[in-house]
Design a binder for these strands. Structure first.
Lengths: 207, 207
DNA sequence: GCTAGCTTGTGAATCAATTCACAAGCCCCG
DNA sequence: CGGGGCTTGTGAATTGATTCACAAGCTAGC
């Protein structure tokens, strides 16, 4: 398949959210223009994005809301239940563990890990906190799909290396640091410091 | 000034982080190539990014680490102390309130707000939780620069409208929802669901 | 079953971002 | 104090993403 741009995938995510909203409101069909308006983009963009994956609409009518919803779920890989482990049972780990959208969208949090003896054995929002030393053995047995790094920056690269070596191919990183991973591993970093600097830049260079 | 792309600003943030690292290690100068290698980009990209803002290097030698650090801080608007309010004193609000990088980089958290009577008046990581009803009066008096939305999606647009009406021009949104704001307000959204879907897309369409 | 009115899907055109490539400039060494 | 070895800064070229624009196709109404 032709390489799909990151920006396209992000927009597909957005469209899916709107489709779910439309579905709730009982709409049967939706036009590329309606989707575009709702999402602050253009109808041509919507159609182009979808065209990478096939033909989902009916000319003159638009897209069937349930059909396009299903198609997007499939494209985004939301058809199966994904197993997630959280590395780090601190405040961020806790916020993630209780995040509704996680379970709602078919992500099952298998376990959390920490090195702090006070935390190991306790529960974090109903999820058992395990000893980081068990990580490799557990991953080999339970084959989680995604690891979430919720630990300080100075430990993040080492933790990434460990989960990668153990066989995880997708990592969501909350540590404010640039990580290096092999090409067959996808890493997405959520870096609050960077977002804040985007804001201060905008504030400083306004008008 | 020519409009600067978002991607450029993000990279400047990254460079700044590396420069701080280099400064700690005591390096006096750094070449665009060294910065590029550290950050997974190209030396031409680094030079082009910087060239939008001026000329910071010496040919044949590279960039003075402290000088470029200072220049980037200035460009990104990190020269002053910014005042931040957190809307929502739940788990995410708590994780943000205790986030080290926040204070370290000159962001002062002024207050948190919630509508839940049980939370109002308590402290969240040392920050007073105030009644959401006071928001407008407080903002008028204290003039915070940035509002962070750490509330469920269904309340986010209303909260955004309120902080904007009160005079805030920069918002960091953690609610998993697309927000609409006037052109003179910058909104950055951190949407975990979207990042996760980027991962499942990659996992699904791998090889 | 024909026409009017929409809306899709997609090449072509435009706009934006990245990479190339090289003259200009600086430093160090002899 | 002149030449060799680097590295910057930047137009030009390339690559990538978005927007345009229109033929093709569907629906509804009569």
């Amino acid at each position: 398949m032709k390489r799909i741009a990151d920006s396209t995938v992000r927009r597909l995510s957005i469209y899916l959210r709107f489709l779910e909203e439309f579905e709730e409101r009982g709409l049967a069909t939706v036009s590329s223009d309606a989707l575009a308006r709702r999402g602050g983009t253009t109808s041509a963009q919507v159609r182009k994005d979808l065209s990478f994956f096939g033909s989902f609409g009916k000319r003159g009518l638009g897209y069937s809301v349930p059909e396009l919803t299903t198609a997007l779920r499939e494209i985004l890989g939301l058809g199966k239940e994904w197993r997630v482990v959280i590395i780090g049972a601190g405040k961020i780990g806790a916020a993630l563990a209780q995040y509704r959208g996680f379970r709602q969208r078919g992500f099952q949090i298998v376990a959390a890990y920490d090195t702090n003896a006070d935390k190991i054995g306790r529960e974090l929002e109903g999820i058992l906190v395990r000893d980081m030393n068990q990580l490799e053995a557990d991953v080999a047995r339970e084959q989680p799909d995604i690891a979430v790094l919720a630990i300080p920056g100075e430990f993040a690269q080492a933790a990434l290396d460990r989960v990668v070596r153990a066989g995880v191919h997708a990592v969501l990183n909350f540590a404010p640091i640039q990580l290096n991973a092999p090409a067959d591993v996808t890493v997405k970093t959520v870096n609050m410091a960077m977002e804040l600097e985007g804001l201060t830049f905008a504030l400083t260079n306004r008008d």
